[in-house]
Computed example of a mutant assay.
Amino acid sequence: MIDARGYSCPMPVVMVQKEVKKSAPQTLEVLVDDPCAVENITRFASNNGYEATSRPTGEDEFALTLVKKA
């Protein structure tokens, strides 16, 4: 789980990139509080073999789930 709340872009994407490079997880949960980060992480995921889904968890807070494509 990556808690990127409080960080503005590009830091949430950088945090996800580092985790993917380090451990190549099958699934990864990411918390963000920046709508721009949702778009950018979703794009990064798509370009790197992951499918991303997001859901709101509060006012301006989102949880993303990245799942490695088979």
Results as ranks from 00 to 15, higher is better:
1 M>Y: 06
1 M>T: 03
2 I>P: 00
5 R>H: 11
7 Y>E: 09
7 Y>K: 03
8 S>E: 12
9 C>I: 15
9 C>M: 09
9 C>V: 04
9 C>D: 00
11 M>R: 08
11 M>N: 04
12 P>T: 02
13 V>F: 00
13 V>I: 15
13 V>S: 01
13 V>T: 13
15 M>G: 00
15 M>L: 12
16 V>S: 01
16 V>G: 00
17 Q>P: 13
17 Q>L: 15
18 K>D: 07
19 E>R: 00
21 K>Q: 02
22 K>T: 14
23 S>T: 10
24 A>V: 13
24 A>D: 13
24 A>R: 03
26 Q>N: 09
26 Q>D: 07
26 Q>R: 09
26 Q>L: 11
27 T>Q: 09
27 T>V: 12
27 T>P: 11
27 T>Y: 06
29 E>G: 04
29 E>A: 08
29 E>P: 03
29 E>V: 00
31 L>N: 15
32 V>F: 04
32 V>I: 07
33 D>V: 08
33 D>C: 10
33 D>H: 02
35 P>C: 15
35 P>M: 10
36 C>D: 09
36 C>Q: 14
37 A>Q: 09
37 A>C: 07
38 V>F: 02
39 E>W: 02
39 E>P: 11
39 E>G: 09
40 N>I: 02
42 T>H: 00
43 R>W: 02
43 R>V: 03
43 R>L: 02
44 F>E: 01
45 A>Q: 06
46 S>D: 04
46 S>E: 08
46 S>A: 13
48 N>I: 02
49 G>T: 06
49 G>L: 07
50 Y>H: 00
50 Y>Q: 01
50 Y>C: 04
50 Y>G: 01
53 T>D: 00
55 R>E: 06
56 P>K: 12
56 P>C: 06
56 P>A: 11
57 T>S: 09
58 G>V: 08
58 G>L: 10
59 E>V: 10
59 E>Y: 06
59 E>H: 08
59 E>N: 12
59 E>F: 15
60 D>M: 08
61 E>M: 06
62 F>K: 06
63 A>Y: 03
63 A>R: 03
63 A>V: 04
65 T>A: 13
65 T>M: 15
65 T>I: 08
66 L>C: 04
66 L>F: 06
66 L>V: 01
66 L>W: 10
67 V>W: 07
68 K>C: 04
68 K>L: 13
68 K>Y: 12
68 K>A: 05
69 K>R: 15
69 K>V: 02
70 A>T: 11
